[in-house]
């Protein structure tokens, strides 16, 4: 697989390590009344879809940035690559 890094262009997937579902960006609020339940779901439950999947990849032996890659789990086709920082900020996170 080739990941089209927004800053560096096409890079071999071997340069990256895989973390998992991009929903891991949405860390629950630890002060919420149901924080325990939210953290259980956040840490352990996954949609694991067959088809389009948004996921976090770390450019470990490259520029060490985190990317959100949209990839089809049935074909391995990658349709979009974003900087995870931009995705997080667009959701109101500071970084």
């Amino acid at each position: 697989m080739i990941i089209n890094h927004p800053l560096l262009g096409p890079r071999d997937a071997q340069e990256f390590t895989y973390l998992g579902d991009a929903s891991l960006i949405d860390r629950p609020d630890w002060e919420a009344a149901d924080a325990q339940e939210q953290f259980y779901e956040y840490a352990y439950l996954r949609d694991n879809p067959a088809g389009e999947h948004r996921e976090l990849w770390f450019h470990e032996i490259g520029d060490r940035s985190w990317l959100v890659v949209t990839r089809n789990t049935l074909t391995h086709e990658i349709t979009s690559v974003e900087m995870a920082r931009d995705v997080a900020r667009s959701k109101g996170r500071s970084k």
């Binding site: 998992g20 579902d21 779901e41 352990y44 439950l45 996954r46 694991n48 789990t73």
Partner: peptide, 8 residues
Amino acid sequence: GMRLPIES
């Protein structure tokens, strides 16, 4: 309607 602690 279930979500599992599993990835494929």
